[in-house]
Write a protein that binds this DNA or RNA. Structure first.
Lengths: 215, 215
DNA sequence: TGCAGGAGTGATGGAATCATCAGATCTGAA
DNA sequence: TTCAGATCTGATGATTCCATCACTCCTGCA
């Protein structure tokens, strides 16, 4: 319907029309992310979303066909942002197993303190992890690198990705239900590395290395 | 509100009042399970649910406070039933690792052919797996037995349960997105056994054993 | 500067859903 | 057989939400 040629991003696109449109769209997405973080639900009315975004009600329909479309975009937005964050923190690590362990532990630590990521992953993380944006392609890339170098052992990278992503989300849910300590994060990373074929002792060592801080 | 002392089951409870009430409740739950299976959504109106159950609209409120309560009960009902089914199929297997492998492969096979279980697990499986009924306690029992006998290696059974459950649901989602063959089920079981601490060769052997049929 | 068209706005009509409640129906016991 | 209590029923009024559209405002271009 109103889907323009997708000028959604582009840091400093040509004219002011497009910049304004992008700002409005981003305001709606931001409001949706806020609501997800606070309520964990997608049932807020479009009126409320528009109010939060400080945008007219009708404006919503200039950018999205349905409320679901908006929340999908919001989740994609959050996961893309978080993927870039993880990339920046792990870019110095060569070993894909170590990248995985660090990413898992950081994600769990973040989820413990940052409800937005938690709720987003809880609600719609799985489809997005297997999807074409955000965390999925990054994890898939690491899995394939690890398999090519003989570090990981599995048949199908897609299957491995789903298993890893599912396990991670399961652990995040547990984390939000009970309060887990950092040691739990190490356990989880260790189990996932073993799942990917690393020997037990090595999985343990990698999972207990010092963890960098998120910016 | 209308929550009676919970006469929900009890095969042949005393009087006909309670039996009728139980039948009506079960009709509502059955309708909800049908709707979950067909649409994968919980957005059907209460009117539609009542119609399916061949029950008056107002009757719904004699049994549940909200639509959400009904769907929770429906998921619990389905998972309890499925847990009993898995129990009956695996009761002859002593090795908890083999029980796990068989349960995982059977669940994936079932999910491929039986949309109801798939949708239910997809939508609300995770909270229920960690919950107090259905699949969770069964899996937890097997995990603890396996740990006590030295077959599994992990710190906290709860953490392991969440990881296994999450991985399984991730794989089921993948399965419903793409069409996977039986070999994928073997891969998945193998990875989960490795996650639980089994040596790679043993995990492979156990995961490729002949699989019993579900009744 | 004036104009054409894209973006933003919110009032509006209509559709859908909801919880309630008073009456009908069923059941067990007197 | 009769009655009191529990369950079932669906019409009802209120509420909520939605998509549309005529209008205004803003921007780029001639």
């Amino acid at each position: 319907m109103q889907n323009q040629p997708d000028t959604s991003d582009g840091p400093a696109t040509a004219n002011r029309f497009e910049r304004r449109r992008a700002r409005t769209r981003q305001a709606l997405i931001g409001a949706a992310r806020q609501i997800l973080a606070e309520t964990g639900e997608t049932s807020a009315s479009i009126q409320e979303i528009a109010d939060r975004a400080d945008v007219g009600f009708g404006t919503f329909y200039n950018h999205f066909d349905t409320k679901n479309d908006l929340f999908d975009a919001a989740v994609g937005d959050a996961l893309e942002e978080y993927g870039q964050l993880l990339d920046s923190v792990t870019e110095d690590i060569d070993d894909p197993a170590a990248v995985f362990a660090a990413s898992i532990r950081l994600t769990l630590r973040l989820a413990a303190s940052h409800p937005e990521i938690t709720q987003i992953l809880r609600l719609r993380g799985l489809p997005h992890i297997n999807g074409a944006t955000g965390l999925g392609p990054r994890a898939l890339r690491d899995l394939e690198v690890g398999k090519a170098s003989g570090r990981f052992t599995f048949e199908d990278p897609i299957v491995a990705l789903s298993a890893v992503g599912g396990a991670l989300i399961g652990l995040i849910q547990l984390d939000s239900a009970r309060d887990l300590d950092a040691a739990a994060g190490e356990q989880m990373a260790e189990m996932i590395l073993r799942m990917l074929g690393l020997p037990a002792d090595e999985a343990h060592e990698i999972s207990t290395r010092p963890l960098p801080d998120l910016p």
